[in-house]
Nucleic acid binder design. Structure first.
Lengths: 346, 346
DNA sequence: CTGTTAGCGCGTTCAA
DNA sequence: TTGAACGCGCTAACAG
C-alpha cells in the first residue's frame, strides 16, 4: 500500500521579457536608436521617438538592469550589513536607509552579521561579487579597512572603526552619556549604576566613559556600580536584579542602551521597587519601543532615522563621485525626559 | 571674502576584478576550461585543473554574478516586500527569511511598502527588471494575481490574497482568536472587548470573527465592545482609554495583535486600573516585545520565525522547480500564558 | 539624426 | 579532454 500524494509544480508560462531588439524590430529602427530614447542620450527625431515609445508600450518592455550592469559596472544596489535586524534599534535605521535609497533609485540588500567577523567577511565577498555599488555597515570589527574602501564605497554607521578616510555616522555617545549622568544627578540620585554594553563595541565604551568622567568629577565614582549587560535585554534584567540584591542604596541607573534600560525596568518592578520613586532609569538611543512601554522611558535620544538617512546620502555621494564636505558625522543627541526619572526639583 | 571648504573626493584606485579571461591566460588554457573547473562541469584533466585553480587563487578571482546572470536568467536574489520593517512583527520574519535564503545561496532585497498598492507595484516592477528570482510578500492588496505569478515565483506571507495557485503561509488566525477568547472566558472574564485590526486586512477580520463566534455561542456577544485600532499602538492606547471611560464593566481585552495589546496595557495603567486584577489582556502574534515588557504579555503566539523560514523554503522550491507537497500552509498557534491574564481558577 | 559593430564576463554548443 | 565562437541584453564609439 503506497500513499500517493499530489505534488504541485511551479510552471511559469511566461515567454520572457521583451528585449531591446524586439522593440527595435517592431519600431523599424536600430537598437541604438531605442537605447537613445531609453536613456535620453543623443539626438533622435521626434517622430522616430514616438514610434519607439509606441513599440515599447506595446511590448510592455522594460530594459534589463542586469544587461545594463554588465557594461556600466553599476547595479544600483547597495548592501546593508547590520548585526541583527531583530534588535529594535536597527529596523529604524534600515527603514531610513531604504527610504532614501529608494529615492535615489537604489535597491538595498539586507544582511545580518550577528556581529561576527566571519559572516561580515562572507557577506562582503558576496556583495562584491554581485557588483554591489556600495555598502553601509554597522560593525565593531576590523573587516573594513582602507584597502576594502579603495575597492568599494563604504560608510560605517553607529558602530564603526578607526579610519580617517572611511566616512562614518554616529551619535554623540560620550556627550550623551555625560548628559544622562548629569541629569540623574540633578534629579537627586546619589548612587548611580551603569549597565554597560559590550567592551568590544566602541560606542559602549564611550558611553561608559562619559558616565565615569561625570561621576569622577563629582567625586562620587564607584567602579562596583558598573556592570556588563552586553546590550542584551535579558542579561540586563538578570544583572540588574542581582545588583539590586547586593546593593540597596542604588537610586539611579544609566543603561548603555534602551534595550538594557527596559530589561532593568523589569528587574526593578520584579523587585517590588517603584520607578521612578525608588529608582530612576535612563536609557540611550531613543528607540520607538521606549514610548510604547509603561512607564515611558526617559532616554538620551539619537536621531536614529536621520543617522540612517545621512549615511545613505553619503553613500550615494561616494558612489556618484560627488565630493563630501566632511567625512565624519557626529550627530547631536538629546535628553528626552519621560516617566522613568524623577522630576527636577526646581 | 569667500569661505573655502575642503571637499573630499572618493577615489577608488581599484583596477577592477580579474576576469575569466585573465585567469585563462595566466593558466595557459581557454576560458571554456576555466569555466569548466569553475562549475565542475564536463571533463577536465586533473593537471590543468590544478593550473587553473592556482591562477584563480593567484589573481584572487571570483566570477561575476552579473555576467553569469545574463545568460542564466538567474540572479540568486529574491525580493522581500513588507509593509514596514519598523513594525516589530516583521523583523523576525525578515530575519528568518534572510537566514534561510543565506543557506541556499540567495540574497534578499528589502522593500517597505507601507501597505500601499502603488508602492508594491513599483517595487514589483523594479524587482522584475532586476531579474529577481522570486518574491515573498506580505500584503493585503491585489497586486498579486495569477498573471504575475505565472511570470515570477511568489509566496505570500501572513497577509495574503485569495488564490488557489499562489502559495501562502499564515498562522491560524480564526482558531487563535477563538482560543484567546475562550481562555479569557475561562479565567472568569465577563465583558470582553476586542481591539480590531484594519478591516482591509484579512487576518484582522478572521481574528475578529473568531472572537465573535465564541461570544455568540456563549450568548454574550456585544457589538459595542469591538473597536477599531488598526494594528496601531497609539490608536490602541487612545481607543482603549475611551472605551474604559464609557464602559467600566470591561474586565478583559482581546487585542488583534500584540502591538495593540501593549498599547491597551498603557491605557489601562494610565487609567489607574491593575492588570490582570481589574482587566486581563491578551494579544496575538507572540512578538519578542511581549516578554520584554512588564507585566509580560499573555498572547496567542504564531511561530513567526518558522513562518518566515517556511515561506523562504517554499520560494526556493518554486524557483528551483522542485514540486511542492501543498500550496497553502496554515501553522498552529499557541496560547502563551504570561502575566497580563488572571490564573485559571481550578 | 541613425545604423553597425564591438565589447561587458560568462556559459555553452560544436568541433577537434 | 580542450578550444573557438556565439549569444545573453544593453551601451558606446564610430561611421554615415
Amino acid at each position: 500500500m503506497c500513499n500517493r500524494l499530489q505534488l504541485i509544480f511551479y510552471k511559469g508560462w511566461f515567454s520572457g521579457m521583451a528585449t531591446i531588439r524586439s522593440v527595435a524590430k517592431l519600431a523599424g529602427v536600430s537598437v541604438a536608436t531605442v537605447s537613445r530614447v531609453l536613456n535620453q542620450r543623443g539626438y533622435v527625431h521626434i517622430e522616430t521617438e514616438k514610434k519607439v515609445l509606441k513599440a515599447i508600450k506595446e511590448l510592455n518592455y522594460t530594459p534589463s538592469i542586469v544587461a545594463r550592469s554588465l557594461n556600466n559596472k553599476k547595479t544600483n544596489t547597495i548592501g546593508l550589513i547590520l548585526p541583527d535586524i531583530t534588535n529594535p534599534f536597527f529596523p529604524e535605521l534600515a527603514r531610513a536607509i531604504e527610504d532614501v535609497m529608494q529615492i535615489y533609485g537604489y535597491t538595498v540588500v539586507l544582511c545580518n552579521s550577528d556581529g561576527s567577523v566571519e559572516k561580515e567577511q562572507e557577506y562582503i565577498d558576496i556583495l562584491k561579487q554581485k557588483y554591489i555599488d556600495g555598502i553601509i555597515i554597522s560593525t565593531s570589527n576590523f573587516v573594513i579597512d582602507q584597502e576594502l574602501f579603495s575597492q568599494i564605497p563604504i560608510v560605517t554607521l553607529d558602530r564603526h572603526v578607526t579610519s580617517e578616510k572611511i566616512p562614518s555616522v554616529e551619535g554623540g555617545n560620550y556627550e550623551g552619556a555625560k548628559l544622562a549622568t548629569e541629569f540623574l544627578l540633578s534629579t537627586g540620585c546619589k548612587h548611580i549604576a551603569h549597565l554597560q554594553g559590550p567592551e568590544t563595541i566602541r560606542n559602549a565604551r564611550e558611553r561608559r566613559d562619559g558616565y565615569i568622567d561625570v561621576l569622577k568629577a563629582k567625586g562620587c565614582f564607584d567602579g562596583n556600580l558598573i556592570v556588563a549587560a552586553d546590550y542584551d535585554i535579558k542579561k540586563a534584567t538578570k544583572v540588574t536584579f542581582e545588583l539590586l540584591e547586593r546593593d540597596s542604596s542604588i537610586d539611579g541607573i544609566f543603561a548603555g542602551n534602551d534595550l538594557m534600560a527596559i530589561g532593568a525596568l523589569k528587574a526593578i518592578q520584579m523587585h517590588g521597587l517603584r520607578v521612578p520613586d525608588d529608582i530612576s532609569v535612563i536609557g540611550f538611543d531613543g528607540i520607538a519601543l521606549g514610548e510604547m512601554i509603561y512607564p515611558e522611558l526617559t532616554t538620551i535620544a539619537q536621531p536614529i532615522y536621520d543617522m540612517g538617512a545621512i549615511a545613505a546620502r553619503i553613500l550615494v555621494k561616494l558612489i556618484e563621485e560627488v565630493p563630501l564636505e566632511s567625512t565624519h558625522h557626529k550627530l547631536d543627541v538629546q535628553l528626552v525626559e519621560r516617566r522613568t526619572t524623577r522630576r527636577l526639583s526646581t
